[in-house]
Design a protein around this nucleic acid. Structure first.
Lengths: 335, 335
DNA sequence: TGATAAAATGTTAACGTTAACAAAAAATGA
DNA sequence: TCATTTTTTGTTAACGTTAACATTTTATCA
């Protein structure tokens, strides 16, 4: 491999001068710089980032950590996250992706290895990880899940408001008996969406019926089972808010399996607007959550943090959007 | 940060001895080693991989490159790939993920930065990248797409055989007019699946009708449009083989939009068995492609290659599996 | 023109680790 | 017991880069 010393020899300068030219330092003469750059490109020089990192005490690596890669994270969520981050991270940074649950201890998470860390957090259990990162003084940004600490940058969608809007929409459509299939209990998002659901009911002075809330864990099967439970009720709800699209699809299938129809017998709304929501039959009305945008913003911001640019924002809520398709029946004309 | 020299001082030995203890070299006395290890863990020592990499000329990084992260790669494919690789890569390696199309030039892809590279290849255009890696003498393994060079390790699913089986199944069900919606033309997988389709027809001495082949690019919308084109034909096919599940879902929706039914009017099979294939209505009959398994195998093998273990295999075909659900109607009783 | 300031380049050390070689300590054997 | 071998430890250099400081060259101005 060609090093700056090789270039130095050919250019008849010291290796420091080469270093300066390559990093376009201001204290170098134009012609010298030009000559060095030319030789470098001729030799196809590429810097050794290990050496650079060693001396500069920087890793040139951004870590993207998800709660889990393999458990409970939907494909579209993972893909959107990576797409968003990938688009924002410039080529001179390594992008390192792992699940927090891949680690038994966090000893290898330190400033030497990571210039900055993005946590796409889906569970309150991530807290010990976040705390560790904080303690090691690695710049961090937490996405997707609200955290109390106001000195940590935090970007998330307003899930509570999003689900409130969705349930309000059901109410506007004339529904009075509205069920919910909840997400993985330990995930903050599941709690927020439940709160939005409750808020809408309370706002409209609707009674809260315990048996209309059933558990789920964000996967399709739990949606199927949740809906079955609701259908077996003496008086099933006429509309069900599912805490994500995957469960909504499972729920739709449960409805069909019971010989009923969506939306004629049961109306359904989902949450996420994952890629296939528009291709279900009928098209799924859902709350669009801007995962990719959140990830993109997060990556941009961690880069600013890492490069020492002043970043002011501390908590950013990205708006959700209600996407109306065909899975909700209008009982009254209002919606 | 604590270094081996700090440990050395406390243990009253030289830093080399510490290095040896930490890397459990055989030429160190038991008690000495034990003492050093104790101090190290007490101080919460964690090695500086930049220094290590610099002196050992190793990067401790495995690169996972996909044809593209943002264009034409489905969410489930991306997610499965990452899951498989992530599960196999041990904690002491960095996992670096990027799209080949994120690079304008490959100068930063060199042995200093990558101990080994996994290419999850979806397009023949990846060849220049593969060639570059080869030229730099970085251990490489190519997944998912067949390559001619027999000295490159290559793991892939037998798409041609998989699609042949799928189409044969349609034929067994009594279908005679069978259409295909093709995948992105430049992707080898699209070609192989087309070949499987043709092989099945030829095996059964069916005529090949040009107008039954329509283009697509693996996304849902192209599946929708492709099906529309087929439906507008004077005599539409009774069954359509879609080159992936996403397009199959688009196609199903096109059928519904025309007031027809799946599978009563048109039978559909997909390819991939992506997560939601079982939750479409009706459930999608499809060819299961073991993306996660391929990725896992690939990662295991690149690790063996990198650590110098002898690896014999050169080309591995992983079997696909026909998953029969409800999207195909049996015209005859044979299936 | 020559002293002085400014700009450009060079020298040397440092980052934290491993490796080659050197030295010391321990074990062996006559 | 002491020479010899073997085992264990230490010393020094190296990896490729940047940074602090030193030196040389160039520009400025009286």
């Amino acid at each position: 491999m060609v090093t700056i010393k090789d270039i130095a020899k050919l250019a008849n300068v010291s290796h420091t001068t080469v270093s300066r030219a390559l990093n376009n330092s201001p204290l170098i003469k134009g012609p010298t710089k030009k000559k060095i750059l030319e030789i470098a490109s001729q030799l196809n020089y590429s810097p050794n980032y290990n050496a650079k990192s060693l001396v500069m005490q920087k890793s040139h690596t951004i870590g993207l950590f998800l709660t889990s890669i393999s458990n409970g994270t939907s494909a579209s969520f993972l893909a959107d996250t990576i797409k968003g981050v990938n688009a924002a991270i410039s080529q001179e940074y390594n992008l390192f992706i792992r699940g927090i649950d891949d680690y038994e201890d966090y000893s290898s998470i330190n400033p030497q290895r990571f210039d900055g860390i993005i946590v796409m957090s889906q569970s309150i259990q991530d807290h010990s990880f976040i705390y560790h990162v904080l303690q090691k003084k690695i710049p961090i940004i937490v996405l997707n899940r609200e955290i109390e600490e106001d000195y940590i940058m935090n970007i998330l969608s307003d899930d509570k408001e999003g689900s409130r809007q969705a349930v309000q929409y059901l109410i506007d459509c004339g529904h009075k008996d509205i069920g919910i299939i909840e997400g993985t209990p330990s995930f903050k998002s599941a709690q927020m969406r439940k709160e939005g659901y409750l808020t809408a009911l309370i706002d409209n002075h609707f009674p809260i019926q315990q048996e209309y809330s059933v558990n789920g864990n964000y996967d399709m099967e739990s949606g199927y089972k949740g809906m079955e439970k609701l259908l077996l009720l003496g008086k099933p709800p006429t509309a069900v808010f599912c805490s994500n699209d995957d469960m909504a699809i499972g729920a739709m299938n449960a409805v069909y399996a019971h010989g009923l129809s969506v939306p004629d017998d049961i109306s359904i709304v989902g949450f996420d607007d994952s890629g296939f929501a528009q291709y279900t039959t009928p098209g799924l009305t859902t709350v669009k959550r801007p995962v990719e945008q959140i990830s993109y913003l997060g990556a941009k911001n961690i880069l600013s943090l890492v490069t020492g640019k002043e970043v002011t924002l501390e908590k950013v809520y990205v708006n959700t959007e209600l996407i109306i398709r065909k899975s909700v029946k209008s009982i009254e004309k209002r919606c």
